[in-house]
Design a protein around this nucleic acid. Structure first.
Length: 103
DNA sequence: ATGTTGACCTAGA
DNA sequence: CTCTAGGCCAACA
């Protein structure tokens, strides 16, 4: 039996480069409202390499946090072609879950 | 079983 | 914009 965290990681791996998702969207996909638990899972992320935790942001478009430092997160996202305006990301353009993944 | 801990969300002032 | 307050829920001690 996978834990809730494991499911989060599994879902996260499906996110392509240049796209982002939100904690809320992930929780919803897991048929739960455990937004916080999703964030908790990211905090305890096993390996930021296998799991693209940096592509997960807040539902309001702000960046949220990152275990390796928020600066690193910004750098990675920009590197993948995501535009960051005033510490915010345009979910309508980069929100993967909002376009096709999320039902 | 109970209490604490969060990389959260929403609403109001 | 900032701050407060309530709600949400799995993992962990």
């Amino acid at each position: 039996m996978k834990t809730f965290n494991q499911k989060c990681y599994n879902l996260l791996k499906k996110i392509p480069e240049g796209k982002v998702t939100t904690y809320k969207a992930i929780a919803k996909k897991l048929k739960s409202n455990a937004y916080r638990t999703v964030g908790n899972a990211m905090n305890k992320n096993p390996s930021p390499i296998k799991v693209p935790c940096h592509r997960v942001i807040n539902s309001n478009g702000s960046l949220g946090g990152y275990s390796l430092g928020i600066k690193k997160k910004i750098k990675l996202l920009k590197k993948e072609g995501i535009e960051i305006k005033n510490r915010k990301i345009d979910l309508k353009r980069f929100g993967y879950f909002l376009s096709s993944f999320l039902v």
